[in-house]
Nucleic acid binder design. Structure first.
Lengths: 191, 191
DNA sequence: TACTTATTACTTACCTGTAGGTAGGTTTTT
DNA sequence: AAAAACCTACCTACAGGTAAGTAATAAGTA
């Protein structure tokens, strides 16, 4: 199954480029070269860049869904769920100072084709909605403590993490860790 | 002085484009057209796009400096300073869902020429450093309340605001306002 | 004062590179 | 033999950039 393999590799490479440079700053050749393939091969799998973008975001969504499904299936505690959420940006940072795909796409949002915009909106909703539920659960079980609605708290957390990843590029990784520590403290979590 | 005028207009347009679409997603023609001028005219004032980018960030820095100088000169209270800081992103949002220039540049950081990177780093430092001092002042005067160092709190606030502006694009302006409200509450400020 | 010389702020007309994309052929696998 | 997974060879558009010229204003000089 060289097909699925290449297709996956294309998506992997595109995703890494998105998180490294932004959507408008990479081309089909940027993907093709490291894969040792010609740019027409990328067009074979993804006729247009819009197709690529949509597929990329859809994969993010599916992966997040899988991730959360697993946590739900394992009856993870709200605290573990929250920490699992933190793990995502933490890994981005570790893997070469990458930025949240959502953040990158939001910055370039006004340059994206409609199909991609819809996917971006859906991804954002999906992630924040799940986080909000986990936070609310945590509060009900008195494991997490915060004022206001869980949805609002989820926005604050998502915004801070997204911003922190970006700032980490110019201020160093400690900026991100600082944010995480404070977010946890504010939820009443021991470090 | 038609010169200074055009030069300023170029920077204004470029800045708006940066905040709307990102640095890599606008060209000299995007600037030239609305100004009713040919793209070579832009090259006259800014030989390369790097020059433009550097000048743009330098102007942000100078403007921020002016802004804070004014606040210091007027012996603004720490609370007013903090609120003045919040005003910046608030205006971005109001002016057509713009995003923080710093955030946009950080996302594209790995595609920027060295000269621009240095400016981005300097702008980030400048803004966060000033905010941190204001926060510390506020705490000393018992007007603001928070745990940990002021620098850390400044990172959290900057990250949250930056992220919130971006999220507002897909989740609506209320997302930003929510963040602001929570950040204020966490500092012990009445709404 | 009149005329030249520079300087400023552009324009026209180009050039090179690369981006995204396509058509049609070739190899590989089923 | 047919479908899948490519490649070669191209095309168009536009990006950033340059060279040479021009109109208008300012400065210097006879």
């Amino acid at each position: 199954m060289a097909q699925a393999d290449t297709k996956t590799q294309i998506l992997d490479t595109a995703e890494a480029l998105l998180q490294d440079r932004g959507f408008n700053a990479f081309s089909y050749n940027h993907i093709a070269q490291p894969l040792g393939v010609k740019n027409a091969a990328i067009h074979y799998h993804f006729p247009t860049k819009t197709d690529l973008g949509v597929a990329l975001i859809e994969r993010c969504r599916a992966r997040f869904q899988q991730y959360t499904d697993l946590l739900e299936a394992g009856e993870a505690s709200p605290v573990l769920k929250f920490e699992a959420y933190l793990t995502l940006p933490w890994r981005y940072l570790r893997d070469g100072g990458k930025v949240c795909p959502l953040g990158a796409l939001e910055v370039e949002f006004n340059t994206l084709p409609e199909e991609m915009r819809l996917e971006v909106i859906a991804l954002d909703q999906q992630m924040r909605a799940w986080l909000a539920i986990a936070l609310e659960e945590g509060r009900e079980q008195e494991l997490l403590h915060f004022e206001g609605s869980a949805e609002e708290r989820a926005i604050l957390i998502a915004a801070a993490l997204q911003g922190a990843l970006q700032i980490a590029r110019v201020a160093g990784n400690s900026a991100f860790n600082t944010c995480v520590r404070h977010l946890k403290q504010e939820l009443g979590l021991a470090n």
